[in-house]
Design a protein around this nucleic acid. Structure first.
Lengths: 113, 113
DNA sequence: ATGGTATATCGGGATATAACGATATGCTAA
DNA sequence: TTAGCATATCGTTATATCCCGATATACCAT
């Protein structure tokens, strides 16, 4: 469907959302972890997550006080899409660094203020 | 690379550009054919084509007075991308109709005014 | 050269998007 | 219940995007 397709590509057509998708390739993360690593305001990150969620790229699960976001890997479309995106992300220094940061991120350290 | 990836997805994240890509899946077309079928102004269509061209989704070749645009199918990335997009376009009535219109389009009839 | 055709570019108006800080909501623990 | 933390939503501002008509450019035929 045209509008669904537009929504998917539009959601991926923005640098900071691509950075979020890239980080979620390492592991599911809560908003505060993403916010810490990406260096944007919490409200901005929340907005980006909403857009990716509406495009059915990511989903969220409540984890007590936290909301954990993760890539939706069930359906074939997304699998192909993520494989493609991952290949496009290869050899990008910033993205590699952020995948590593995501992997190492510990919400108990990053989030408690 | 991040910015290249953003450019590609941004170029595909717009309904009318998706319609153009869909039509070009039938065959290479010149601007006037696309303009006729899509029903937007010539300048708007030209703008969309420029964006798709800058994202290296399509390329153009001069054909005398005409400029013919076609999908860039050489590299693997695009091949995968087009296969994916094509599958997302399946069973969309408007897009099917426009692929057919594109296939039947004859620039000698559509364009000469 | 002139006239005609196809395409690209420019300028402007309307709408959409991205960013932020402030505030609201929702949950947990004491 | 209250306090505190994580997240979502709201209001605003700045920028980007989409559309069009008008104009410029490029090419072809006469």
């Amino acid at each position: 469907m045209l509008n669904k397709t537009e929504k998917i590509f539009k959601s991926l057509g923005e640098n900071n959302r691509l950075r979020i998708v890239n980080m979620l390739m390492s592991k599911p993360m809560c908003v505060c972890e993403i916010t810490e690593i990406i260096g944007l305001s919490q409200s901005t990150v929340s907005g980006h997550l909403r857009i990716l969620k509406e495009a059915e790229i990511i989903e969220d699960t409540k984890e007590g006080l936290w909301v954990e976001y993760s890539l939706i890997k069930k359906d074939e479309l997304n699998k192909t899409l993520f494989k493609l995106v991952r290949s496009m992300f290869d050899n990008d220094e910033l993205l590699e660094k952020e995948r590593r940061s995501a992997l190492l991120a510990d919400r108990n350290i990053l989030c408690k203020k």
